[in-house]
Amino acid sequence: MSRILFTRRSFSALAAACVAAPALRAQPKVEKAKVSIAVGGKAAFYYLPLTISEQLGYFKAEGLDVEISDFAGGSRALQAVVGGSADIVSGAYEHTINLQSKNQMFQAFVLQGRAPQIAMGVSTKAMPGYKSVPELRGKKIGVSAPGSSTNMVANLVLSRAGVKASEVSYIGVGTSAGALAALRSGQIDAMSNTDPVMTMLEQKGEVRIISDTRTLKGTNDVFGGPMPAACLYAPLEFVQKHPNTCQALTNAIVHGLKWLQTAGPSDIIKTVPETYLLGDRALYLASFNKVREAIALDGLLPEEGARTALKALASFEPSVKPDKIDLGKTYTNEFARRAKDRFKA
């Protein structure tokens, strides 16, 4: 009798192992376990999914040892990858289009933000009587870093009012305490930046917002359609050579996006580093509530969003010719689809 019982138990254990086996096989060994990610302004809500996935150990759970290097803005992070000191950029999707126009092939493979979350505001101290965009001619405008997505949004706002980028001075101020200090000390007259910085300045009456993409509606008003924002992107060659690594990175980010869908403000406060709060917990949470809907849900980049980004760039960037850009090569949803199914995002 005991022998039969033992056999049944063995059979049950074997059956359970067989059921579990496909799940294990579904996660093949990563080609590159140690991965370096360059990000431009990690403390911004723009990159919150990256921070959440890091802080909650989701990269480690996928068998990755991820090192994240923080730079002043997205353009600086991109330079790190182009220069070979990092593997992957956590940055704005539109850089992949810009790069392709210069014959450099990069591909986005998981979306973190479905709206740019960038607001442009004029200093109420430097320009108290401000009425319209042309008044910014000859002024100093703060951006996270020249060439970054904050710079791109400023270019778009100016070009629509007939102001050329060459008619203003752009100054890199980062995305945290340095940006606040630059505006408050009068080093700049206006600023295009992300949250929590812009909400902090707005709530204290230090800036007057003139363009806002922190909500889906605001993004649609500015760009005329959905505008994909932060994503993980890398040289096309890297993506092709390291599909399992890209899948693992995507899994970690989508896991973070899934967590963010139900996380409350107190969960966010407990998870992000204290320095991200910029000394004002209440304003940090007010900023989070403002940009929450801009966070991606499942890591998928919408085709319509890619077209919006191309149209926006081509409107003020002469080197970007829409008929010469192959949008299909600038992003892939292959990894995000698998991660979405796995995490039911």
Results as ranks from 00 to 15, higher is better:
M1S: 10
S2R: 13
I4F: 14
F6N: 07
T7V: 00
R8H: 02
S10G: 08
L14T: 05
K32D: 01
V35R: 04
S36K: 15
A38G: 02
V39L: 12
F45L: 04
Y47S: 10
P49M: 09
L50E: 03
L50I: 01
T51R: 07
S53M: 06
E54L: 07
A61M: 05
G63L: 10
D65P: 01
S69E: 09
D70Y: 02
G73F: 06
S75N: 04
Q79M: 12
G84Y: 09
D87H: 06
I88M: 05
V89C: 13
A92I: 00
T96Y: 05
I97N: 01
Q100E: 13
K102F: 11
Q104E: 11
A108Q: 05
F109C: 06
V110R: 12
V110K: 13
V110G: 11
L111V: 02
G113F: 01
R114F: 03
Q117G: 00
Q117S: 09
I118V: 15
G121V: 10
V122C: 02
S123F: 14
S123W: 13
S123L: 14
K125D: 10
M127D: 04
M127G: 08
Y130C: 02
V143D: 03
S148H: 05
T150W: 08
M152I: 01
A154P: 06
A154F: 08
A165E: 13
S166N: 13
V168I: 12
V168T: 02
I171E: 13
I171Y: 10
G174L: 11
G174W: 11
T175C: 14
A179M: 03
G186R: 02
I188Q: 07
I188D: 07
A190K: 04
N193S: 15
N193G: 14
D195N: 15
V197E: 06
M200I: 12
Q203K: 14
G205P: 07
S211A: 15
T213A: 15
L216P: 06
L216H: 07
K217V: 12
N220Q: 14
N220M: 12
M227T: 00
P228D: 04
P228A: 06
A229E: 03
C231H: 07
E237F: 03
E237L: 05
H242R: 11
T245Y: 12
Q247G: 05
A248F: 03
T262D: 15
I268E: 07
K270D: 11
V272L: 10
L278G: 01
Y284S: 11
L285S: 14
A286C: 00
A294D: 01
I295G: 03
L300E: 14
E304V: 03
T308N: 04
K311V: 10
L313F: 05
P318M: 12
K321N: 14
I325N: 02
G328L: 05
K329W: 09
T330C: 13
E334Q: 14
E334R: 14
A336H: 06
A336Q: 12
A336T: 10
R337M: 08
R337C: 00
K340G: 04
F343K: 00
K344T: 02
A345C: 14
A345I: 09
